[in-house]
Design a protein around this nucleic acid. Structure first.
Lengths: 395, 395
DNA sequence: ATCGTTTGTCTAGTGGATAAACTAAGTGTA
DNA sequence: TACACTTAGTTTATCCACTAGACAAACGAT
């Protein structure tokens, strides 16, 4: 019958403890006195909360700091190594698994190339890679605190994969399978959402509250951080901007609609255009994003023009994004990052011609600096964050 | 230096008091005992908070209710008439001002038709209409608690009108002018955002957390309720979906870009198409939305086909909205509501052909039932809500 | 009339935050 | 070296809001 969480002193304590923990996490080493200043809490309150966090081994004392004219402070550290989080990015032809500490630092990393595996084969790979990461993990008080998995497809709010067309998966409940085997909280996320979260946590967008992450791969997916939170939509299916109509009289997409953005601005679109324009690659080489990047690098005029065209198409969608969200930051991630050298200028030029200047005021548009790790880092961080929150709730 | 609000017992009390007040507001008449059940708070706590609210005249006791086998409960009412809120919708050729009680019930309403007034003339009209509403307002403990104003243009986060092209206003600070004259909190909002808020509060979307409100007038604006909150974007300029490119090779819009949605699916677009197709209206009549609606009513085949075409174009944008936001509800409001009889089927048919069925699961698409009042009700409710929150903060 | 039930108030107790006193441990200066 | 002054961190007394549970008031049923 309860409509909402009531607010009592227990909640107050949890929130303040979380406040203190996150303050330490964000700006350690830091003294109790500075924490009191930073959080606005009373010195005594900070002291007692800090002591509890020390007991829980979530933070550490690192000895005296430098005096500022009086007693030397005892510096506190966030105990990054109190536990570890696993983040896995399942791509179409790879599985990237990373082990991070609670701060998101990568401690171990496994990249496995795959070729059209079945669901069962993928599961096998996942089990192996997770087992390996756990086996090689240092001793710690909390061990593995969670596993996050990003997939290129739609994920329901309950964590079920509804449809991952490029993996040829439909209605599979990967989350439960992994959760049952390892008995650890498992979070499934759409790859673009995971990437957006990763960029928010570790990218240039740390301070930004409104971020649009464009995951440009074979298709295009978009992850949204709005009002500082991941926006997932009613069924968890937001951000399917690859299938935004930008040319209503255009060719039919395999989704069934006409003139979708990803027909023009995705990796697949680029390869198709390159093929149509008879861009000549060396014998024996396949036509891939990488070979095209190499061609552009070698100064092939036709390829460079193609890149510019791709930039034009990208900007059409980006302008729509700007008009829709008025974001603070737009990050282009995934495969397209490999082309940033040739895309950057084209994007800049085309965006300079956008008449909506107010919307672009203070807007940062950049390529992901996390390389291929945005999604894996994102889900790992999500699991870590989840652990820190749950852990505080329980006490 | 404080990074965040700290949580202490004062906050707890404020939040719980707000919880109780809103519970009463949502489901009065209600007894203290039922409130305790509903909110999860202790009986004693509810009692003391209720007493404070009674003293502040925000709620009322309405005498005994029916017994359920024991002592008869004292029923509590939300005191809707503790104060009044003014909501004003400034349109291109009208000014709609309403006076509502704290619950959002309309107590008085003034609709003034205007013809291309200057900013100063509009200001004069606003002063007059506000004065009139205040003069005719019943006695109450708090009087006018706020004024909300919706305008068809971009409004910065600080409340300044950056650009209202159809009003021909640019960089005007209406908020301060009104605020100084009446010494009451004034909130300025984009008309679409105001409408979205109105629909969230009073429309079919009360329980929905993810609502997209499409304000279809001369142009198209969109208001977004995401994760239960109004999403305004980094500079407050989100929702300019009228200028979403849906036809990248299409005609140039006066915004400078090509193939914007509102070139196809707005009131202006409809009138243009009607003109181009030589739809014959009666002599002496102007070509307007209303005359076209009348023609369709009279069974004019050409006009009806035109409406169907408009529906097709609308759906192209709506599909983009679905793919972007995966909303729970899409509400079409403003001028286009007048055409719902002829648009509804077209929308339904075209949406049935949308391949993204998962995204449409549980999605409600409907026309606004608040008629022209969405925006005015929205800003009035926003001001009322603001008062209730502020009022609790202060004690 | 009596018992059980429901409503609402009252009181004592709990937990957490705060202010301020206090201890500890530095720096600066004569 | 002595002493004043600072800053860090702990301890204590107090305050405040919520809770549990006792209690009183008001009602229905028998």
């Amino acid at each position: 019958m309860k409509m909402t969480q009531t607010f009592n002193q227990h909640v107050v304590k949890k929130r303040n403890k979380s406040l203190v923990l996150h303050a330490i996490k964000e700006s350690f080493p830091i003294s109790r006195a500075d924490l009191a200043n930073l959080t606005g809490l009373n010195k005594g309150t900070v002291s007692s909360l800090v002591n509890e966090l020390l007991e829980e081994q979530l933070i550490l004392e690192s000895g005296p700091g430098v005096s500022s004219g009086g007693r030397r402070p005892v510096m506190l550290l966030f105990n990054q190594s109190a536990g570890y989080s696993i983040g896995i990015d399942i791509g179409v032809n790879y599985v990237l698994a990373i082990l991070t500490d609670l701060q998101g630092n990568i401690c171990n990393e496994k990249l496995i190339k795959v070729q059209n595996p079945t669901f069962e084969q993928t599961l096998e790979i996942l089990f192996n890679v997770i087992d390996d990461l756990i086996a090689a993990m240092p001793q710690s008080p909390y061990g593995v605190v969670g596993i996050g998995i990003g997939v290129p497809g739609t994920v329901s709010r309950t964590g079920e994969i509804l449809l991952a067309p490029n993996l040829k998966w439909k209605n599979v409940d990967l989350q439960s399978v992994i959760e049952e085997r390892y008995n650890i909280p498992v979070k499934l996320k759409n790859e673009a959402n995971a990437g957006a979260y990763g960029e928010k946590k570790f990218g240039a967008g740390k301070e930004c509250n409104n971020i649009v992450y464009i995951s440009g791969g074979i298709g295009i997916g978009v992850g949204l951080i709005l009002n500082g939170k991941l926006y997932k939509g009613h069924n968890g299916l937001s951000g399917e901007l690859g299938h935004m109509t930008i040319n209503m009289d255009g060719p039919v997409c395999n989704c069934g609609n006409k003139g979708c953005w990803e027909l023009y601005a995705s990796e697949q679109a680029l390869l198709r255009m390159a093929f149509e324009q008879n861009i000549s690659i060396e014998e024996g080489q396949e036509l891939t994003l990488e070979t095209l990047a190499q061609l552009a690098e070698d100064g092939d005029e036709k390829t460079i023009q193609l890149m510019e065209k791709l930039g034009e198409y990208l900007v059409i969608g980006i302008k729509n994004i700007i008009n829709t969200f008025n974001p603070e930051q737009i990050i282009i991630g995934n495969r397209l990052v490999a082309l940033q050298t040739w895309l950057a200028d084209s994007l800049k030029e085309n965006l300079a011609r956008n008449p909506f200047t107010s919307q672009q005021e203070g807007l940062l548009i950049q390529f992901s600096k996390l390389e291929k790790r945005s999604a894996a880092l994102g889900v790992a961080a999500f699991s870590a964050e989840n652990f820190l929150t749950i852990n505080l709730e329980e006490n």
